[in-house]
Structures are given as C-alpha cells and as structure tokens.
Amino acid sequence: MKRFDLELAVGIFFLIGIACLAYLSIKLGRMEVIGYKGYAVYAKFSNVGGLKKGASVEIGGVEVGRVKDIKLDPEDYTAVVTFLLNPEVKLPEDSIAAVKTKGLIGEKYVSITPGASERAIQPGGRIRETQPPFDLSDAIGRLIYGSPGK
C-alpha cells in the first residue's frame, strides 16, 4: 500500500510537470509537433529588417502561413523570404507581400494583399510584388531634418 502511494505521488508529479512543459513549448513556444504542412512560395524584398523565421503570414489579419526561411540573394543583394502557406489558400499571381509591424514597436510579420488575377501562384512560385517595411527611425529622421529640397 505504502509503495503504491509513493508510485502514485511520483506518477502524478510527472504528469503535472510534463503537462506544464508541453503547454509551454506547444502553446507558447510554437513547437510544431506534427510539422507545419503547406506549400512554399517565395518573394524578394529590398529590406526585411526585423523579420524572423516563424513569423506569421496574414491575409486581412488572418494567419495563413509562416515564414520558413530568410536568405540573401548573392547576385542582386535582395532578401529572399520563403513562406509556407496553408494549402487551402490560393494566391492570385498579382498579390502583394509587405513586411509590417504589429503596433508601433511590435513584432514584424508579412501581410499579403491578394490581387485580382485569375491565375494562382503555383507551389515554389514567386510573389512578384513586394513592399519593404515602414522604417520608423527613417521616418522620424525625415520629420526632424526635413527633406533636403525645402
């Protein structure tokens, strides 16, 4: 009986501990237990300042994918960002991808504005139209020093 109680206590302790650990890593740490499924498309940005792997990709504020990889194209020095998109979402060819900021100083994410084209981007294809992020410090600088023309 005594031994049984001991094992029960240790068992409960393990369950609690592992449940907490799982909660932290899956819910908060976005650990991908099964792996994020989706198709890859890429886009070239002149500047992706602050965007990280795993950042969300949204259309109209709804998450439709994640940033899978960010690399530099050695030929034209642009940033190549690869996205993994939800297979149910078909992107028109003339969609525009933009790096945006949540709130004033929040996290960077990618927002896609769908185009009107009939043809969808195929897996592995490219989103041609992009917008670099709005650079806060740049804007403040311009505000303070004014444009050189004035």
């Binding site: 908060l28 976005r30 929040g106």
Partner: peptide, 12 residues
C-alpha cells in the same frame, strides 16, 4: 495573444 510572438522554443 502576444506571447507566442515573443517566445521561441529556444527560450523554453
């Protein structure tokens, strides 16, 4: 809502 944006598996 904001937590997952800032916490990575690395932090854990």
């Amino acid at each position: 809502g904001e937590m997952p944006q800032y916490i990575d598996l690395t932090e854990i």
